[in-house]
Design a protein around this nucleic acid. Structure first.
Lengths: 97, 97
DNA sequence: TCATTGTGCAACCTCCTGGTTGCATGTAGT
DNA sequence: ACTACATGCAACCAGGAGGTTGCACAATGA
């Protein structure tokens, strides 16, 4: 999932989808200097990472942000950094004693 | 930075450094099924992303976690998800009205 | 001084990723 | 039925990421 976000194009897509509404592929591809196919691949990656949902409507497939999907990553980072802080504080106590 | 974390090996390294103490390169490479050179490259990436600090001590270079470096990413994710939630809530209100 | 240890550097290799093009398919509209 | 639009699929390509090997070099310890 960090890998999914570690790409400016996909961050841009996520940002565009961040308005909460549905977007088709050509809609998302419009304005970006990329082929529709490239966008399709990126969307596939994002979907695989659980960041977006897709729904087929007629001849177009609409993508939406999956709300709350990012909080997992955020909580993970929170936990990690708390562990760091705790470990470092512990070390500091040992050194000072 | 997401790209730096989007790699299991580097996550492992970050996790090992998470104890807050200093580690040399061979120390970190020990136990991993990789060459010392590979670890060196990964550490370079992590350092470039601002996640770790390095210090030369005698003939070995010691790496440490940069505390607080991850909070930037976490705050970013928090801001993003808040924007999403706000946008979606706004949409819902419009739809229901 | 000499062997050992910890790194750094450079060249090289392989494979995956990001990207394109071309074509086929399904859906909408007239 | 025919055209236009939105997408899917497959093949293909270039470049970079991840990894290895070999060698050179500085610091350590006997």
């Amino acid at each position: 999932m960090f890998a999914a976000l570690g790409c400016v194009t996909r961050l841009e897509l996520v940002s565009r989808l961040g308005d909460g509404s549905e977007h088709s592929i050509t809609d998302l591809a419009d304005g970006l200097p990329l082929t529709r196919q490239a966008i399709t691949k990126h969307l596939r990656v994002l979907h695989h990472a659980g960041l977006v949902d897709s729904r087929r409507v007629g001849r177009e497939s609409r993508f939406t942000i999956r709300p709350g999907s990012i909080t997992h990553a955020r909580d993970y980072l929170t936990r990690i950094s708390e562990q760091w802080d705790a470990a470092i504080a512990r070390l500091r106590t040992v050194v000072e004693s």
